[in-house]
């Protein structure tokens, strides 16, 4: 089993709902983004193309970050999900340097508020209890592994059942993000990748990302 995502770029409207869903799901502090939306333009008038990419940790099958981590804080599960054990991270930043996709960030300033000078919102206060993030450790997307685990425990199918699927996927209003098992040749995600010719970023690094993009 290897979880992966396929993103249909033509469907993405750049609403950033995936970013907000991720922030809410994991109570992420203001400066921390586990996923982002890139909006840009390519070409010159009159042949300008608008580009919208939603990006996050590529959950590589052969991740550079796991290899370089000196403490074993960055780990890979059997289902391919790469995550950081915050209790083990020493903050050496080797994983941040080694990630070819620059998808990791360091949580450094615990005093930042979403509404500066107005104190923490109820949501932030609740987050510090329910989903505390340690200062000085590395942060990254974990494919909502807690949702997947809870869903599988209830015999739900990630990518099909909402409760077992990552927050960014189920909150996308245009259904641009697909989630599923890349190892299952009959899975919906594999069908989409095959039919619509999904591609990965920077194959030259040899990390075999689990994120596919469909032009």
């Amino acid at each position: 089993m290897r979880w992966g995502m396929a993103i249909e770029l033509k469907r993405c409207v750049g609403c950033c709902e995936c970013v907000l869903a991720c922030k809410a799901e994991h109570f992420l502090p203001p400066d921390i983004f586990w996923n982002r939306v890139l909006i840009g333009e390519k070409g010159k008038y009159p042949t300008v193309t608008k580009l919208i990419y939603t990006v996050r940790c590529n959950q590589c099958a052969d991740p550079a970050c796991v290899k370089v981590c000196p403490t074993g804080a960055t780990q890979q599960r059997e289902d391919g999900i790469v995550w950081v054990d915050e209790d083990k991270c020493v903050g050496c930043r080797y994983c941040m340097v080694a990630c070819p996709y620059q998808m990791r960030s360091m949580y450094e300033d615990g005093n930042k508020e979403y509404f500066p000078g107005q104190g923490l919102t109820e949501h932030e206060k609740m987050g510090r209890i329910l989903y505390p993030h340690q200062l000085g450790v590395v942060q990254k997307c974990i494919f909502c592994k807690e949702r997947i685990d809870a869903g599988l425990a209830q015999e739900l199918k990630p990518g099909v059942d909402r409760e077992a699927t990552p927050a960014c996927v189920i909150n996308c209003p245009t259904k641009a993000i697909h989630f599923g098992d890349l190892d299952d040749p009959y899975s919906e995600i594999n069908r989409i990748i095959k039919e619509k010719k999904g591609h990965q970023f920077h194959l030259e690094y040899g990390t075999d990302p689990s994120m596919y993009y469909i032009d």
């Binding site: 796991v66 290899k67 370089v68 981590c69 000196p70 403490t71 074993g72 804080a73 083990k88 991270c89 020493v90 903050g91 050496c92 080797y94 360091m106 450094e108 200062l135 000085g136 450790v137």
Partner: peptide
């Protein structure tokens, strides 16, 4: 960032 955990840096000489 977490110097008190420095002893953990001996943990993975196999790849790091």
């Amino acid at each position: 960032s977490k110097p008190l955990r420095f002893w953990r840096m001996f943990m993975k000489p196999g790849t790091s």
